[in-house]
Design a protein around this nucleic acid. Structure first.
Lengths: 122, 122
DNA sequence: CCAAAAAGTCTACAGCTGTAAACCATTGTG
DNA sequence: CACAATGGTTTACAGCTGTAGACTTTTTGG
């Protein structure tokens, strides 16, 4: 169930704010300045593809994400790792480390993450 | 200087094997089973876009990557991080950690990376 | 209940991408 | 040198994506 970059903006709105009406979605992606028609098209394509669902209750239609954010993030990330880093996370981190583009705060955060992984070694 | 997924297969061949003739490129991406014509088209588009360059010496034309792999990897990775993880590496690692999809070897590797970063704290 | 507004569906269209055939140029070989 | 093979260029075309207008249906305020 693929989602294009433009469509993912719609998904993002639904993931963050929960089910929304069309006009709420339009408002939510206002920063993209797309015409309303454009947003309607994107919603429609997502519906057809099954990434979202529409629910009708007393005159209002709300759109709800079917595809979950975690699944989407996972698919996108794994695809990048596969294409560029042999499918693993460590080489990506290594790349950023070499670039020296890891801020100290990030390094700290990473270390904390690893420590936690050791802790709950279930 | 954008490179599409299909085109990136050509780049990959040039990055790994260095400058190649057209027929060597065709051989290098044989696993994709594309017709020769397809490979030629991809080479051409890369040329036009400036991602590769052709050099002619005594009757042979070789193609050489102009765009560097590290730059490409960086751009692609950063774009993913920006789209999905607030531009930072740590949240991506966190995501995989939550998924429990980090193999012990990877965790070890990550830890080693972080240690090195501390060491040469230049 | 009717008309205006809002919401939803259908159609359009240009540019990008994957895929490749056809055509033109070069080069090496008998 | 002529021709076959190889290499390079141009053209093609369908599907996807971004972008949006036009048309239809539903809702709602007077």
């Amino acid at each position: 169930m693929s989602v294009t970059p433009a469509e993912s903006q719609i998904m993002e709105a639904l993931w963050i704010q929960g089910p929304l009406t069309a006009s709420e979605v339009i408002a939510a992606v206002k920063d993209q300045d797309w015409g309303e028609a454009t947003v309607k098209t994107l919603i429609h394509r997502l519906l057809k593809r099954g990434a979202i669902r529409s629910e009708r209750a007393d005159g209002r239609t709300v759109y709800r994400a079917v595809l979950e954010r975690a699944a989407y993030v996972q698919a996108e990330s794994q695809s990048l790792l596969d294409r560029l880093f042999g499918g693993e996370v460590a080489p990506l981190v290594a790349h950023f480390a070499e670039r020296r583009s890891l801020k100290p705060a990030e390094i700290k955060r990473l270390r904390a993450l690893l420590d936690e992984l050791d802790d709950d070694a279930d």
